[in-house]
């Protein structure tokens, strides 16, 4: 893996961002920056989200009622907006994860067939 930034950043499949956010929030309430950090780090920086695009996605999740938001103090005493999964969001994550697996398997089958 070449880690030259900006060149080999992998594009996300459409709709995957929301799933990643939901999955990240399974670990507990987190702010936008923290979510971006976590996704970047756990994917070994392969999945570099364009961090700005995180915010419209979060608004959508709020609208659908899958997450709730709350202003809290960070450990460094700064005010940040923490997002938290709702029960509805948990259910949605299960659905999306299942979908995702189906697609990945399908793609894998196609790729192996050649």
């Amino acid at each position: 893996m070449v880690k030259d930034q900006g060149q080999t950043r992998s594009e996300l499949l459409p709709g995957t961002l929301e799933m990643l956010v939901l999955k990240t929030l399974m670990r507990g309430p987190m702010h936008g920056y923290g979510i971006a950090q976590y996704v970047g780090q756990t994917s070994d920086e392969v999945l570099q989200i364009e961090e700005g695009s995180l915010y419209p996605a979060l608004q959508r999740l709020l609208l659908k009622g899958w997450v709730t938001a709350e202003w809290r103090q960070t450990p460094n005493n700064r005010r940040a907006r923490y997002y938290q999964l709702t029960p509805l969001g948990r259910k949605q994550l299960v659905v999306e994860a299942a979908n995702y697996n189906r697609i990945i398997e399908a793609i894998a089958r196609v790729m192996q067939s050649a």
Binding site: G32, R79, R81
Partner: peptide
């Protein structure tokens, strides 16, 4: 304003 603040924080 909340969006503004949260992006600034980020």
């Amino acid at each position: 304003s909340e969006l503004e603040e949260e992006m600034r924080f980020h």
